[in-house]
Nucleic acid binder design. Structure first.
Length: 374
RNA sequence: GGAGGAAUAGCGAAGUGGCCAAACGCAGCUGACUGUAAAUCAGUUCCUUCGGGUUCGGUGGUUCAAAUCCGCCUUCCUCCA
């Protein structure tokens, strides 16, 4: 694996949380980290410059969506995803496995792969582990994902067992098909809420020796305690020296829990989506900017935040933009929520280095009051 | 002074005899959103002990039944003098 390796720099003595460095062809990033999601080769409403100002490292993009529009060949001709979207830091592409789940009523899964009715015009589309890898090689992200089946929750044990077996076979096929030396292909642990299947899936993937491992099948409608259990049931079976990525998790309490359990990478649409819907994460908890009580509130969204939005604008202005459905409002709020999570990660890393992540988590959650939404 | 027209819930605006506690939009309030088919979606905004009760400028009528028809009053708009 050219240019890609992972270094653990410190393990928190209080919790086992990890501080590390992920080296990629597009630079090094510190973990634990939060990765903003830019499904269609753009983090909705934000420029790469704004993302970097938020402190972004890796960002995500999506194989399924980009293969439909503009098509992998066009991204390839553009010189790859980094050039195409003008982002020179690391990029991770998801395999499309999640779309198999989220567009579930329009697909059929077989051993060979998945047949989709694509969501744009209903045209039939076939995805296999090899095809997903082929597309991702053209897109050219630094970190890519195996095609997996994100089985629904709840699922029966038998369904999940079969699904895990197939995901493992698909992982092997994808790994065999993957040729690019400058990309790290991660395997994805499934198994739902079943401890033994999580363990089995993790151990089998580890035998295949991937450069990193993802925890999938979370945040798909299961209760929080079940999600936490899924995480706790997986990380013990992953090798210490490889990066671990918890897919699709972006609520504050779940991220902090994941870090405590030894997860290094998180991604989620949550901060950007809820920002567009007027919900903001602040150090004192949730703020609904649409509330009339902010109409004459000329203070920043979060006085403790150092983002462009909080440094320059008031809640009254943000509410005004939101109520008028102005694009700039969505941008400012997205900047804030992304910066909030990235800043939380910066603080988490400091806490890990100082062997006090457990204290940090407790203090942060007490103030954030995560019972009130996300 | 004369001739027309209009008054509907916080605002705008449908409704012209029973299916109207009254469409719809805005505004307000709740909630949802987690590997993005999401600048989206759902609920809610007269009172209620959930049986019902009081509403459509005011008032008096007609009718089994009125936001809807008639009289008078008030306010506003347009045109003519």
């Amino acid at each position: 694996m050219k240019d890609f390796y992972f270094e653990i720099k410190h393990i928190c003595k209080q919790t086992g949380a990890r501080y590390g460095l992920l080296h990629t062809p597009h630079g090094d990033v510190e973990v634990p980290m939060f990765m903003p999601v830019g499904t269609l080769a753009t983090v909705k409403s934000l420029s790469p410059e704004e993302l970097k100002e938020c402190g972004s490292g890796v960002i995500l993009s999506n194989t399924y969506h980009l293969s439909l529009r503009p098509g992998a060949d066009i991204v390839d001709k553009a010189g790859g995803l980094h050039k195409f979207m003008n982002y020179d830091r690391p990029i991770l592409t998801d395999s499309g496995g999640f779309q198999v789940f989220s567009l579930a009523d329009k697909r059929k899964i077989t051993e060979e792969g998945v047949t989709f009715k694509n969501h744009l015009n209903g045209a039939k589309l076939f995805f296999s582990p090899e095809i997903a890898i082929g597309i991702q090689e053209k897109l050219g992200a630094d970190i890519i994902m195996s095609l997996d089946e994100c089985a629904p929750y709840p699922a029966t044990y038998d369904y999940m067992k079969n699904s895990v077996e197939r995901t493992l076979r698909w992982a092997k096929r994808g790994k065999d098909a993957h040729k690019r030396e400058d990309q790290a292909l991660f395997g994805i642990v499934q198994g739902g809420e079943f401890s033994d299947l999580r363990k089995y899936c993790a151990e089998e993937l580890v035998k295949m020796d991937f450069p990193g491992y993802s925890i999938g099948g979370t945040s798909i409608g299961e209760p929080k305690n079940v999600m936490f259990k899924m995480i706790a049931d997986t990380t013990p079976y992953l090798p210490i020296e490889k990066p671990r990525y918890l897919m699709g998790v972006g609520s504050v309490d779940a991220i902090l829990y994941g870090i405590e359990k030894g997860v290094d990478m998180f991604d989620c649409v949550l901060p950007t989506r809820i920002a567009r819907h007027g919900a903001l994460m602040t150090s004192n908890g949730r703020v609904n900017i649409r509330d009339q009580k902010y109409a004459e509130d000329f203070t920043p969204l979060d006085p403790e935040c150092d983002c462009y939005c909080c440094k320059n604008y008031t809640k009254a202005y943000l509410r005004h933009l939101y109520k008028c459905d102005e694009i700039f409002g969505k941008r400012l709020l997205s900047i804030h929520n992304i910066r909030f999570l990235i800043h939380m990660m910066e603080e988490a890393r400091e806490a890990i280095k100082n062997d006090r992540f457990g204290d940090f988590k407790k203090e942060f959650l007490a103030k954030f009051n995560s019972e009130r939404g996300f």
